[in-house]
Amino acid sequence: MDSAVDTAAHACSFPEGTSVSSPNRTLIVYVDVDDMLIRSVGSKRIPIVPAIEHVRRLHATGAELYCWSSGGGEYARASAQEVGIEQCFRAFLPKPHLLLDDQPVADWKLCIELHPLSIHDQDAIDYWQQIATRMMS
C-alpha cells in the first residue's frame, strides 16, 4: 500500500496494486452549490470558504468532482467560477428530477452523504474509511 488512502480504500475491497486515482479507485464526489459553496442572503451571495477549500483539497488528492445544482448545469458552472474553483470540476450538471436505479440511494454501500457542517477537517482517507465501514455493515 502506498498511503493511508490506499489502506482505507483497500478495506473497500478494491484490487491490490492500483492507486487511489485509478479508474476503479477514484473517489467520486458530487458537490451542491446552494448552501454548500455559496449562501444567499437576499440578493447577496456569500462564499462558504471552508467548503471551497475542502473542494480544492479533494481535487488536489485526485478526487473526481462534479458540481451540480437544482438551478442547472450552467448555474453550477457560473457559481464555481464565481468562487474560483471551476477548474476543480470535471463537469457541471443539473440535479436530477428522477433517478432510475434498482436500489434506493440509502442502500448504496459505496456512497455516503455528508452535510456541509460535517466536512470540517475530513479528507479522502476519512471518506474511504466511512465507505469501508458502510460496506462492512
Results as ranks from 00 to 15, higher is better:
residue 1 M to I: 08
residue 4 A to Q: 13
residue 4 A to P: 02
residue 6 D to P: 06
residue 7 T to D: 07
residue 8 A to C: 11
residue 9 A to T: 11
residue 10 H to W: 09
residue 10 H to E: 13
residue 13 S to P: 01
residue 13 S to W: 13
residue 13 S to R: 13
residue 14 F to E: 04
residue 15 P to S: 12
residue 15 P to H: 08
residue 17 G to E: 12
residue 17 G to A: 10
residue 18 T to C: 06
residue 18 T to P: 00
residue 20 V to P: 12
residue 22 S to A: 13
residue 23 P to L: 03
residue 23 P to F: 08
residue 23 P to R: 05
residue 23 P to H: 11
residue 23 P to T: 05
residue 23 P to S: 09
residue 24 N to M: 04
residue 24 N to C: 07
residue 27 L to M: 11
residue 27 L to N: 14
residue 28 I to Y: 13
residue 28 I to D: 10
residue 30 Y to P: 00
residue 33 V to R: 04
residue 34 D to C: 02
residue 34 D to K: 00
residue 34 D to A: 05
residue 37 L to F: 05
residue 38 I to C: 11
residue 41 V to F: 01
residue 41 V to W: 00
residue 42 G to S: 02
residue 44 K to R: 02
residue 44 K to Q: 02
residue 45 R to L: 05
residue 45 R to A: 04
residue 45 R to C: 04
residue 46 I to F: 06
residue 46 I to W: 01
residue 46 I to M: 09
residue 47 P to N: 13
residue 47 P to Y: 07
residue 48 I to H: 02
residue 49 V to D: 12
residue 49 V to W: 09
residue 49 V to I: 15
residue 50 P to Y: 15
residue 50 P to H: 12
residue 51 A to Y: 04
residue 51 A to K: 03
residue 53 E to C: 14
residue 54 H to L: 09
residue 55 V to F: 06
residue 57 R to Y: 11
residue 62 G to A: 07
residue 62 G to K: 11
residue 62 G to H: 09
residue 63 A to L: 07
residue 63 A to P: 10
residue 64 E to M: 11
residue 67 C to T: 02
residue 67 C to V: 03
residue 68 W to P: 01
residue 68 W to M: 06
residue 68 W to L: 10
residue 70 S to V: 01
residue 72 G to T: 01
residue 74 E to F: 03
residue 74 E to T: 09
residue 75 Y to T: 01
residue 76 A to T: 04
residue 77 R to M: 06
residue 78 A to Y: 00
residue 78 A to I: 02
residue 79 S to Q: 02
residue 80 A to Q: 04
residue 81 Q to V: 04
residue 82 E to T: 02
residue 82 E to C: 00
residue 82 E to R: 03
residue 83 V to Q: 01
residue 85 I to P: 08
residue 87 Q to A: 12
residue 91 A to Q: 13
residue 92 F to L: 03
residue 93 L to Y: 01
residue 93 L to A: 00
residue 95 K to F: 00
residue 95 K to Y: 00
residue 96 P to S: 13
residue 99 L to P: 00
residue 99 L to H: 03
residue 100 L to Q: 07
residue 101 D to G: 07
residue 102 D to V: 09
residue 103 Q to T: 13
residue 104 P to L: 09
residue 107 D to G: 11
residue 108 W to T: 01
residue 108 W to R: 14
residue 110 L to V: 05
residue 111 C to D: 12
residue 111 C to L: 15
residue 113 E to H: 12
residue 117 L to H: 10
residue 118 S to N: 15
residue 118 S to M: 14
residue 120 H to R: 14
residue 122 Q to C: 14
residue 123 D to Q: 12
residue 123 D to C: 15
residue 123 D to K: 07
residue 124 A to P: 04
residue 124 A to Q: 14
residue 126 D to N: 15
residue 127 Y to A: 15
residue 127 Y to T: 14
residue 129 Q to S: 12
residue 130 Q to M: 14
residue 130 Q to W: 06
residue 131 I to M: 10
residue 137 S to Y: 03
residue 137 S to W: 01
